[in-house]
């Protein structure tokens, strides 16, 4: 009995190490291919079923992101002025905004191909950039890069850059503007309003 238990403990221990040690470029490639594979087969996603896309993103993509770090980067200097409770609300609302806006991109997926650029990292690195490119017939390829950091739970994405535009830091000026005019709570409020209006759009689209 005891032996079995110890064996089990060891097994889970090694399994968790194996997971944590999945290299960042391997992680990006695995998740991308898994998600695209599902989208290719799912007719409802291709027809623009938002709730199905959100389900997929929730299950496959979100666990690999570090949203508190992303939010801190987007808020910038004002992040430290926010109380832990405010930081938590900001993170929640920002996550919803990003997920809602960019998940929809998956519904317009057609025949794009993701090319993974050669990746090098040193043994002790805890912060890396994984570079990919999205190719579509008849279009210029689009550069799509992921910044990842090493946490206890494994590698997590904390920034995504499309054609050199960081989806996270691109919010910095807009957020600072909101904080200047209404404080941290003002920023939270405008994110809440924004997310509500996006929910309204979805309801309208599903209704027709």
């Amino acid at each position: 009995m005891m032996k079995k238990l110890i064996a089990l403990l060891f097994a889970t221990f090694f399994a968790s190490i194996a997971l944590a040690q999945e290299a960042p470029d391997v992680l990006v490639k695995r998740v991308t291919e898994e998600v695209l594979e599902i989208v290719r087969k799912d007719k409802e996603i291709q027809n623009g079923d938002t709730s199905r896309v959100l389900e997929l993103v929730d299950a496959k993509v979100l666990p690999n992101f570090n949203f508190p770090h992303m939010t801190a980067l987007a808020v910038g200097k004002d992040w430290r002025k926010a109380t832990p409770a405010q930081q938590k609300r900001l993170t929640g609302e920002f996550q919803e905004l990003l997920v809602r806006t960019y998940s929809n991109a998956l519904t317009s997926y057609k025949n794009q191909r993701v090319v993974y650029k050669p990746f090098k990292m040193n043994a002790g690195d805890t912060d890396v950039l994984v570079r990919t490119e999205v190719d579509e017939p008849g279009r210029k390829p689009v550069q799509l890069d992921y910044s990842l950091e090493k946490l206890d739970a494994g590698w997590k994405v904390y920034d995504v850059t499309v054609a050199g535009i960081s989806l996270v830091t691109n919010y910095r000026d807009q957020f600072a503007q909101e904080v200047r005019s209404g404080g941290i709570d003002g920023l939270i409020q405008s994110l809440v309003t924004k997310n509500k209006s996006l929910q309204g759009n979805v309801a309208k689209a599903d209704g027709k």
């Binding site: 054609a163 535009i165 691109n170 000026d173």
Partner: peptide, 21 residues
């Protein structure tokens, strides 16, 4: 959908993209 302030969003995206180029 993404922008709180569309003008600022477009401006900052342009400046970042140029830096990248």
């Amino acid at each position: 959908e993404a922008a709180l302030d569309k003008y600022a969003y477009v401006r900052d995206a342009y400046l970042q993209r140029r830096r990248n180029q």
